[in-house]
């Protein structure tokens, strides 16, 4: 299994007390320590990569808003520091390299361990800690540049992936399946939101949903949908904030539930999986959950 990361992830600095903080990367590294994975450095993503999903005006506006020092605030939650653009572009580049490597047969699975996250970023709007839709960009890379017929995305971050849904709303060749707590930020993700071609599958979960109920929902709805889709590549928005310790949400999953997800997602994937870090704000829980998820995915894809 390949793990992509870059020191630029730690140059995206948020104001003191912000949950999506630099220290998350150290927690992720602690979780990855000693695992049997091949570490690679993320290349820098390009403007053209971003334009696979966003209008040029969005990319250029983010770039122009990067401050020389201090912060620029894009919405109630989302900040740019001097290193934020580079960090986001390493995440996009890492996703691109991971997709290329997995499709090139270098590995069955890859994990992109970068921040900022991406799944809330809409076509023309940075929000919810996210600047560019990293995972959606990965999907379009696979479809457009590699010419894959079918891609699937599973998003198990506790918040709905409104950005991914927005960016791929009209993309009939990409299944987007999301589980998320509802009601909760960002407010979207109802089952009635199905995408232009019926390719969006939203599975809202009540506050307090534990690992057993999550597994039942995945077994009943999401995993069969992915298996039926027969994707040539599975992308995963891997947020670990459904953990019971997370301060930003109210689900009751544990690290072993993320191990279970890794196993079941691998089984339905057809053998090509690229996962990308999204949320997860309790540092010990993030560390433990990333470890469980990557360890299992590495074991099965070896």
């Amino acid at each position: 299994m390949l793990v992509y990361s870059h020191s630029a992830s730690s140059d995206h600095v948020t104001p003191l007390g912000h949950p999506e903080r630099v220290a998350r990367m150290a927690a992720v590294e602690q979780g990855l320590a000693g695992l049997a994975v091949e570490r690679r450095e993320c290349p820098l993503g390009t403007r053209e990569d971003v334009l696979l999903c966003h209008p040029a005006s969005h990319h250029d506006r983010i770039l122009a808003a990067v401050p020389v020092d201090g912060w620029a605030q894009l919405d109630g939650d989302t900040y740019l520091s001097p290193g934020s653009y580079q960090a986001a572009m390493r995440a996009v580049g890492g996703m691109g390299a991971a997709v290329d490597a997995v499709l090139g047969g270098e590995a069955g699975a890859a994990f992109v361990a970068c921040r900022p996250p991406g799944h809330h970023a809409e076509a023309r709007r940075a929000m919810g800690f996210c600047l560019f839709g990293t995972v959606a960009i990965g999907a379009m890379r696979a479809l457009d540049r590699h010419g894959l017929p079918r891609v699937a995305i599973v998003d198990f971050d506790v918040h709905h992936g409104n950005g991914t849904q927005d960016l791929l709303w009209d993309e009939g060749d990409c299944l987007f399946a999301s589980s998320h707590q509802m009601p909760l930020y960002p407010g979207s993700g109802r089952p009635e939101e199905k995408g232009a071609h019926g390719q969006v599958l939203n599975v809202p979960l009540r506050g307090g949903t534990d690992g057993a109920a999550m597994r039942a929902a995945y077994e009943r709805v999401i995993l069969p949908a992915v298996a039926d889709w027969k994707p040539d590549l599975l992308l995963v928005s891997a947020g670990f904030d459904a953990h019971r310790a997370d301060p930003l949400a109210g689900l009751e999953w544990e690290a072993e539930d993320f191990r279970w997800l890794a196993a079941r997602l691998w089984e339905v994937s057809g053998g090509r999986v690229v996962s990308s870090l999204e949320g997860g704000y309790d540092l010990p829980a993030l560390s433990e959950s990333v470890r469980a998820y990557v360890e299992e995915m590495a074991r099965l894809s070896a």
Partner: peptide
Amino acid sequence: VTQLERGEVKLEESIALYERG
């Protein structure tokens, strides 16, 4: 409920609002 559904709430504050709900 209206605030949560409109998506006007900050990510960071969303859970507190949910708990109030």
